[in-house]
Amino acid sequence: MTDSLLPGGLGRRGFLAALGVGTVATVAACTSNEAPSSGSGANVAAAGGDNATPGAPVTIGFSAPAADHGWIAAIANNAKAQAEQYPDVTFAPVNPTNDVAQQIAAVETLINQKVDALVILPNDGSQLTSLGRRAMDADIPVINLDRIFDSPLAYRTWIGGDNYGMGVSAGTYIGERLRAANVTNPVIGEVAGIDNLPLTQERSKGFSDALASYGYAVGPRQAADFTAQGGQRVTANLLQAAPKLDALWNHDDDQGIGVLAAINQAGRNEFFMVGGAGSANAMRDIQADNTVLKATVTYSPTMASSAIALARLVAQNRGMSDLVEKEVPTSITLASATITKENVADYLPLGFES
């Protein structure tokens, strides 16, 4: 995503830093083709390192919620496909479930089987924290995927999306577009996900903060439930309450199917919309440019592929060859890119089907 300028010439990275958003790790790249001189004290990563080289055989257990949502389905598919890339990995998934007790029981079987590593996307991070601790205490490294456990003692590495960054990306796109059109006092709607989830709260906070940097504020807001049905229901209510909109952000592209349906049923097209997560169907709509949907901000399920890759390296006591450090980092946050008609072709191959 381009580092588009916010008001005052402040780039998105600077904006995040100014708000106190810490980066997990910064890797400085050497821009010179010359090797560091001897005695310089410089630490550099070995050039040409290859983590794909087979290592010790390992079994990686995997657990995630039921695939009743396009994004979750892509998580499971990506994890399986990544594991199949490695001849030294045995992939051991348990049955997906939306029941916390059933997920705990299923992962306990993997712990008892003494798998070499676990990748867990918990239904509820808080409720499964003790399970992560149990695995770690049994010397089974846990890669905590997306929904984070309450304690860092419950996982070896966390990898997930940037929920606050999603909101910033959506708010920045909307703010730039409205400012370029010289719109004053815009009415900006928001269709959120599940309001009691921290991820929804973080997305809304990032959105509000980014809009505030333009002097704008969030207008009518409704929370849905990350389903197409919920998106359609709450959007119908929002549109009835707001006879005029200038822009709308929907947090989730699966939910967005219903959001767009409600917009079409209401015959509304005086505003533009931004989606969330990066589904393939949303990208195709953006590419066709025949709906109010003009952009989406990513929360990519490719994180599951990376989680399997990290679990393999951790289980094999290997690091990431392009990094100087000998160990895999403890936390990795994916960036949230803004997909528009101009760059959608680059991202479409990574989209998931809603």
Rank of each mutant, 00 (worst) to 15 (best):
G14C: 03
I332K: 01
E176C: 02
L118G: 05
A106H: 07
R233G: 03
F272P: 11
F15Y: 10
A47D: 14
D68V: 12
A64M: 04
E34R: 15
L211M: 00
T200S: 14
V58M: 01
L145R: 06
V115F: 02
A17G: 08
S32D: 11
L199A: 15
Y173K: 00
I148M: 13
P243E: 04
T302M: 09
A261E: 14
A217G: 12
Y86C: 11
I174M: 05
D146F: 03
A335T: 15
I194C: 07
Q82V: 12
Q287F: 04
G11P: 15
I75M: 06
A45R: 06
Q201V: 12
P329L: 03
I148C: 01
G161E: 13
L313F: 06
L248R: 06
F62A: 08
V328T: 00
Q102G: 10
T235L: 10
G258N: 03
Y299E: 15
L334P: 06
A311H: 09
L348A: 09
P96D: 01
A64H: 09
G70A: 10
P7K: 00
D254R: 05
N95P: 01
A307I: 11
N264C: 03
E327G: 02
I194E: 15
D322H: 10
I159F: 00
Y216Q: 11
L310G: 07
V168W: 04
V89P: 09
Q82W: 13
N112R: 11
V119W: 00
D3L: 01
A106W: 04
R268V: 08
I104R: 09
V94N: 04
D253R: 04
T184P: 07
A73K: 11
Y173P: 00
S321T: 14
G206Q: 07
A181H: 04
P198S: 13
I120E: 03
A236M: 09
P141E: 07
Q127P: 03
A101I: 01
A52G: 12
M1S: 14
A262V: 11
I60H: 00
H251V: 13
I60Q: 04
G132L: 08
R147P: 05
M283D: 07
N33T: 12
E202M: 14
E176V: 06
R318E: 12
Y299V: 14
A223R: 09
R268S: 02
G275H: 06
